[in-house]
Simulated scan of single mutants.
Amino acid sequence: MANDPIILAFDTSAAHVAVAVLRGDAVLASHAEPMARGQAEHLFPMIEQVLDAAGTPLNAVDRIGVGIGPGNFTGIRISVAAARGLALSLDRPAIGVSTFDAIRLEAPDVLAAVPAPRDMAHILRPGTDQAEMVPADTVPDAVLPPEAAQLAIAIARCAAQADPASAPAPAPMYLRPADAAPPRDAPPEIIP
């Protein structure tokens, strides 16, 4: 167990901040807080808190797992940017893990679903790799993501199983276009 890699994982793809530290199969520490806003300001303090609880310095982390969505656009960007920055600064691999992969970790053949706005759900049907958006009430038998702390643990376990040599840099998993629209007014003229 002492030679097992240490995995730091975190997720801000929904209304939460969740962090976990694993060594092999052992969960050294995990913590999650519900949070609709402010994930960017709370992510690194929570990472530090969880690493302290695990008795693990940041430079001892062997691999970083990060939730890439689907979910909240801003939340996904926060986690992915943090993971890529940590990976670069620590010279460690960062592995992006979709919420679908985290759901399917224990049961690979389930209909995985992630809640979406307006009573919709992002789903991934068994045997496919193309997600769909459907009304949530049309998939009552779908398996939803675990609570936030368990989601971070599942992300860490998926990252531990991944081959870092073949894993691309984490990138957001966006399944729908942004809700925001560009402004209609022309930008102001900048005078040198």
Rank of each mutant, 00 (worst) to 15 (best):
D11A: 06
G55C: 04
D163F: 00
N72Q: 11
G38D: 08
P146E: 11
P126I: 06
G127E: 02
I190P: 00
L105Q: 07
A116Y: 01
E106N: 14
V50K: 05
D91I: 08
G71W: 07
E41T: 00
N72C: 13
M133R: 12
V61R: 07
F73R: 02
I68S: 10
P45H: 09
I153M: 08
V21L: 10
V19F: 10
V21H: 02
M46I: 08
N59Y: 14
T74P: 01
R84I: 03
M173E: 05
A53M: 14
S79V: 07
G65W: 08
Q161C: 08
P170I: 10
R184V: 15
T99Y: 11
P45S: 07
A113S: 11
Q49A: 13
L8H: 01
P183N: 14
R104G: 04
D109M: 06
G38M: 06
P164N: 01
Q130L: 15
V19H: 03
R63A: 04
P93S: 07
P170N: 06
P126N: 08
R23L: 05
G127F: 03
T12R: 09
P70I: 01
P117S: 12
P145W: 00
P188D: 08
E33P: 02
V114S: 05
N3Q: 15
L151E: 12
E189I: 14
P168F: 09
F73W: 11
A178Y: 14
R77E: 03
S13R: 01
A171D: 10
L43A: 05
D129W: 05
A87E: 05
L105D: 02
A131D: 13
I47F: 04
A116K: 05
Y174G: 08
T138R: 13
L111N: 07
R92M: 07
A29I: 04
I191R: 12
V80P: 03
P192H: 10
P192I: 11
P145D: 00
F44G: 00
P172F: 12
L151V: 08
P145N: 02
A178K: 11
D91F: 15
M35S: 13
A14Q: 14
T74R: 05
A165H: 09
A82N: 03
P188V: 03
G24Y: 01
R125T: 03
D119R: 13
A186N: 09
D109N: 15
R63D: 11
A102I: 10
A152P: 07
P93G: 03
A107D: 15
